[in-house]
């Protein structure tokens, strides 16, 4: 992500509030519309929108709140998802499909099946996750526009 500001086509950071499930998805939908307008390949837009939607839902369900930053370069898009806690105790376990700590009320709304993190990894070209209990989690996803 060592890029100069001059190369950046577009950058924006938006907040996701803790527990605001009702609004979750709006940021991802706006990314999708913006990337379509920029003429990004529809398959890349879809992959990014899925990864972003999963991240946005996770921020609302699992965290104390956080932010999503999208940075668009001519050849690459980065999506950075940061939260302020509580952090993930065991990342390897959280990355397993089907493992979930989502409460029952979230499952009743159709989410929290333990597919979010692995799906973000599957949809992105590069995926990094770091987490510290008490501090929070950062996820960096990259999407190559030149494939």
């Amino acid at each position: 992500m060592e890029r100069t500001e001059k190369e950046t086509t577009y950058q924006e950071t938006r907040r996701v509030q803790k527990g605001d499930f009702a609004a979750a998805g709006q940021i991802s939908a706006s990314y999708k519309n913006m990337l379509k307008r920029l003429g990004v390949d529809s398959k890349v837009v879809r992959r990014l929108a899925i990864a972003s939607y999963e991240a946005e839902i996770n921020l609302a369900i699992h965290t104390l709140g956080g932010s999503m930053t999208i940075i668009v370069y001519p050849d690459h898009i980065f999506l950075v998802v940061e939260d302020t806690g509580p952090g993930i105790a065991d990342i390897a376990l959280a990355m397993q499909e089907g493992y979930s700590t989502a409460p029952e009320e979230v499952r009743m709304l159709g989410f929290g099946a333990g597919m979010g993190l692995p799906n973000m990894k599957r949809c992105s070209d590069t995926f990094e996750i770091t987490s510290e209990l008490g501090s929070g989690t950062t996820i960096r996803m990259g999407f190559n526009l030149l494939n």
């Binding site: 998805g25 999708k32 398959k43 879809r46 899925i50 939607y53 159709g110 099946a113 597919m115």
Partner: peptide, 28 residues
Amino acid sequence: SDVLVCNDADRLLITGLCTVHTVLTAQI
């Protein structure tokens, strides 16, 4: 969560979950 696992757009979604997030999922 399970519907989002496959990114093929050429699909019909059949569901009993009638919420705005169902439509948002279809949009995504």
